[in-house]
Design a protein around this nucleic acid. Structure first.
Lengths: 185, 185
DNA sequence: CCGTTAATGTATCTTTAAGATATATAATTG
DNA sequence: CAATTATATATCTTAAAGATACATTAACGG
């Protein structure tokens, strides 16, 4: 089974929504789909060059004056590639959650540290929530199918944050209580 | 900022819980922490060799007869490395959820396919749930702090599955309803 | 009982992905 | 107007994924 460069299709997908520069691509993906999709600039940059060479994206606009900026768009061929990727069942999602990994391999000695990590995580989630609300407000509530798809991914983000917040609160409560729980009859 | 090989510490952490072979490491990590931590055999293998060379893990048992098997354990030095890693705040978690990515870049034409993907995801979650219950039952409910930490990661897994199941059901309901929702005044 | 398949196990190779860093220009701000 | 921050491309190294090869043992069906 040949492995595929998933970043290629992420790029095609985002550029089809809106032509952008590499820098804007990274920024946009961080802000819109960052909760469930991570990309690095190095990989995006390399991938764009490859996509350009094979004719799947093309330079739409290149500013010669002032600050350099190269805006890319998707070609007909790129559109077809993207559509055929969308017709294939998605791979299983992958995740690397270092906080949970640390909790898993830690022991009693590390609990004070773990508590600060969990509090930090909780704070981060609370900060992210209003951002999602803002994005939600910017999507046209016109009941169109396209908007529904975007709202679905946003809804996932909201559920994900809510779930994480609840788990953090549960964890703080559990780890803060005295050892062996002082069961009272 | 020097980047670190997180896999190194994952290996040290798992081997400290229980000496294992590389094969068993991959299997164990898939079965116990697979929901929030992904590892590949290739990387584990390479990392173990490096850890062995720098003296952080050591061969505990090597079967000469029959099927080859090399069981590794953590050295004193490895323990110290692991502990100092645990004292550092965790990096932000990363995720690549291809299903959500596809939903994000898809349009109306792809909805029938998306529905099958979501149904598949739902089925997978329903299959995983009893597995978690089984693991939970195998953890001693002795109120000890160590068991609490394991239960916390399991609890995260359960919440994650529940959240995903609910989102899938919501998505199926939303995408199955007729276009524009036939608003009735 | 034997052939096929599935599971256990190590080793290696290539490609994908992450992310640090260098460099340069424009905008912002004290 | 100097210092900082945001925008922007390019490159390099390392981490991580995962495909594949190879060998042994267990399990299973005809």
């Amino acid at each position: 089974m040949k492995r595929i460069n998933t970043t290629h299709f992420a790029i095609l997908g985002l550029l089809r929504m809106q032509p952008m520069s590499a820098y804007e691509l990274v920024k946009f993906s961080k802000e819109s789909i960052g909760l469930f999709w991570n990309e690095s600039y190095g990989h995006i940059h390399k991938s764009i060059k490859q996509l350009e060479q094979e004719g799947s994206v093309t330079v739409i606009e290149e500013s010669e004056t002032g600050r350099r900026k190269i805006v890319y768009g998707v070609t007909e061929q790129g559109c077809q590639q993207l559509d055929s990727w969308l017709m294939q069942a998605p791979e299983e999602s992958t995740m690397r959650n270092e906080l949970l990994m640390k909790i898993f391999v830690a022991d009693e000695r590390h609990i004070p540290q773990l508590l600060t990590y969990i509090e930090q995580e909780l704070a981060t989630c609370h900060q992210l929530r209003p951002l999602l609300t803002g994005i939600k407000a910017s999507i046209p509530q016109d009941q169109g199918k396209q908007a529904q798809l975007w709202l679905l991914t946003l809804d996932y983000g909201e559920r994900y944050l809510r779930m994480t917040i609840e788990w953090c609160e549960h964890a703080l409560q559990l780890l803060n209580q005295p050892d062996r729980g002082e069961k009272n009859g």
